[in-house]
Design a protein around this nucleic acid. Structure first.
Lengths: 323, 323
DNA sequence: GCCTATTATTCTCCAAATGAGTATAATAGG
DNA sequence: CCTATTATACTCATTTGGAGAATAATAGGC
């Protein structure tokens, strides 16, 4: 039986060079508060929480969970691995040592806001203002992004490349009578990066190029990682009951709907939303009602225990279709 | 602006311990030949190809691509990251250094089979015989797995745990009038591991416990990684046109259907399959026909260029529904 | 107390998608 | 020329999904 270690030695004549790596964990921690999706940040709210992966943890997942809970006193409900990055040009300064960054998505609730000086929550649409379509197509997208992306596509020299750019932009941003697909968060960010329209791509905008598009900046590639997390979450809520982790113990159906809409960045049809939620037996009435919002009082619901048990495999449907 | 490096130093009092890691790439390379899904292996076909991540690659993805193409002369069509593992008990012997394994899924075609002594292809159902439902529920599942899983669930002491085990087994394997969900490959493998029914879980079967269930063994956690890859692929073919990468340049619709069925491990309704493929404009006729199989000759098709262009975001539908 | 605005909740309707079966076409081989 | 076999084209019933209408229950102004 051939061992993996043996193989590695045999196949790499310069295995010494492959040793010098260190591993970092980067966390995208999401909560939804007052109908706004928010992300846990550090520093001047321009960095995602991250830290070294320590050897005494059983696994990456438990390492992340322990690390986040230690530093934020936020229990993490749901954790899922996002992506592992190791691109050479990731770190700005000339590090000899290569860093492997393993990113995770975590869901929680923003409860005991104890005003930490090192950690804070910030609405994720501050970083991606073009992603919020709940009040219609945002003007930033119409007035600023669209013309600049068109210009970028048109400035390509070769006709093939022009066509390719136009097509990719149209698909990602829903131009030419295409529908807006809220799942393409990462593709959109990467197109903006490629077009040098975000400040992270500091290729040319301070030397005569166009200035960056609105949207809060993050260090290194953290905004790309956040985009990855948002995209994953927007995909996931459509077929797995993860909204749970973001809700308080009891809630009204409208609150649940607002949470889903906040994540998806688009509105859903209320009666259809109710129909889907109820026919899947995801929730049960608590018996209480709530009459805050000036109208007929709403019934309070909680998630059913069985759903929590089947959580890992149970399906959910929402009135949001796949692109 | 606070740098990530600074943060890491500040937050870890023992950052020296977090340095000693090395990174490995592990590849799940899939091809479909004669209607059978196959995986590229090394050694006695009991290990997935793997090797050290080398610093001179631009990114993990390009590192893997270069590595696989160098060692197999198989161009990799489609590559996607699977998962990053770093559990402490992953390596058998007492390594001081921790290994981070980054696994990838790659799709290709098994063409120039040049009988390499170090690499070989093997049908993936050799490793997971209970996953092939194309000819109905396999007898291995009915006669061997079912009673053993039931026994394992019943042997739990506490009633709560018994109920929990029964439920998880029922969901994963489709007992109690539930449907078989072909996507739950990983959940099934992990349940068998937990129940010590696969040889990798060498807890008790050689010391009085039950012998392992049929299915070819792999070293370390390679079979789990393969299960992860199969699950991902079975999910992916339902909404993204990745079957392309596994097909020859031209093919008949039945060949395409057989490939999908091979991956999904279940049969699909032929007229409906054709309807979906054609109404999505995924393919176009070449004009030629093929009359090998003793019947009316079948038209040859190829994939349309536009689809290849939109590949990253385009959707596909198949007559396989989500669980 | 009555009217109005507001939200909650329930139904209805129609179009599209899906699952499953049937009918017809074109070849090879005896 | 008949039969077996596969390809291809239709049909039909059922389920889903999107969108709007109708009704119920509260608060607040008058």
């Amino acid at each position: 039986m051939q061992d993996k270690t043996t193989l590695a030695k045999k196949q790499s004549g310069r295995s010494d060079r492959s040793q010098a790596v260190s591993a970092d964990l980067i966390a995208v921690i999401i909560a939804v508060t007052n109908g706004e999706p928010r992300v846990l940040t550090i520093g001047q709210t321009n960095a995602l929480p991250s830290g070294p992966f320590e050897l005494d943890h059983r696994s990456l997942q438990s390492g992340l969970r322990a690390w986040v809970e230690r530093h934020t006193s936020h229990p993490l409900g749901y954790v899922e691995q996002l992506y592992t990055f190791a691109d050479r040009d990731r770190i700005d300064d000339e590090h000899v040592q290569r860093v492997i960054s393993i990113s995770y998505l975590g869901l929680t609730r923003e409860e005991q806001t104890e005003r930490s000086p090192t950690h804070g929550w910030r609405g994720w649409y501050d970083y991606f203002p073009w992603e919020d379509h709940r009040a219609g197509v945002p003007s930033i997208l119409l007035d600023i992004l669209t013309p600049r992306l068109q210009a970028w596509a048109d400035e390509a020299d070769e006709p093939d490349m022009r066509h390719d750019r136009r097509q990719r932009v149209a698909i990602a941003f829903g131009f030419d009578d295409r529908d807006w697909n809220e799942e393409l968060v990462l593709q959109r960010y990467e197109l903006l990066y490629e077009a040098a329209l975000v400040a992270e791509a500091k290729r040319n905008w301070h030397t005569g190029g166009v200035p960056p598009v609105p949207g809060r900046l993050m260090i290194a590639d953290h905004r790309r990682i956040l985009a990855t997390g948002i995209a994953r979450l927007r995909t996931k809520i459509k077929y797995r009951p993860v909204v749970f982790e973001l809700m308080p113990p009891t809630f009204t159906l409208l609150q649940l709907q607002r949470t889903v809409e906040a994540l998806a960045g688009r509105l859903v049809h209320k009666p259809n939303f109710r129909r889907l939620i109820e026919e899947q037996n995801l929730v049960e009435e608590t018996g209480e009602t709530m009459s805050d919002t000036g109208g007929r009082p709403a019934k309070r619901f909680r998630f059913r225990q069985t759903v929590l048990a089947e959580r890992t495999v149970a399906g959910t449907k929402l009135p949001l279709s796949r692109g």
